[in-house]
């Protein structure tokens, strides 16, 4: 599929790295890209269910554009949230909804995208998309 330019650049950056440990380190660094949702705003509504880590995400529309904020106690999960932030924050909801989760596999940072109890990224991605659909309705 066609990804937003900023995501395409990120995918290429990750694909240029051969060492998996280095690639994961890059994901860890993406944790800083997350618009922080303060811990005292974490609730059952923001919780990403099915994530091994304690991870939360909050989605709103600001001037008609998607704004996600969140946080996680796993650096990797928060890093993936950072990548998702780069991919869709500031997009129109309809445009954000076109995004496929495949980019995480293309970047070589996840072994599987199948929904499962251990797949924090997939559960996070699905929750964000569900909430955007809700905001759009």
């Amino acid at each position: 599929m066609t990804y937003p330019t900023q995501l395409v650049e990120l995918i290429e950056e990750f694909q240029d790295v051969e060492d998996q440990m280095e690639r994961l380190e890059m994901v860890f660094e993406m944790a800083d890209e997350v618009v922080v949702l303060p811990v005292d705003s974490w609730s059952d509504t923001t919780r990403i269910v099915g994530c091994q880590s304690e991870a939360h995400v909050y989605v709103v529309l600001q001037e008609g554009k998607v704004l996600i904020s969140g946080g996680a106690d796993s650096q990797l999960v928060q890093g993936l949230m950072g990548i998702l932030t780069i991919a869709i924050n500031g997009s129109a909801p309809a445009q954000a909804l076109l995004l496929s989760p495949d980019f995480a596999q293309e970047m070589g940072v996840l072994n599987s995208l199948s929904p499962s109890r251990s797949n924090g990224f997939r559960n996070m991605f699905d929750k964000v998309m569900l909430e955007i659909r809700g905001l759009e309705a």
């Binding site: 440990m21 994961l24 860890f28 106690d73 796993s74 650096q75 990797l76 999960v77 251990s118 924090g120």
Partner: peptide
Amino acid sequence: HSEDLAHL
């Protein structure tokens, strides 16, 4: 985090 350590 345990999940981070397992990925690494």
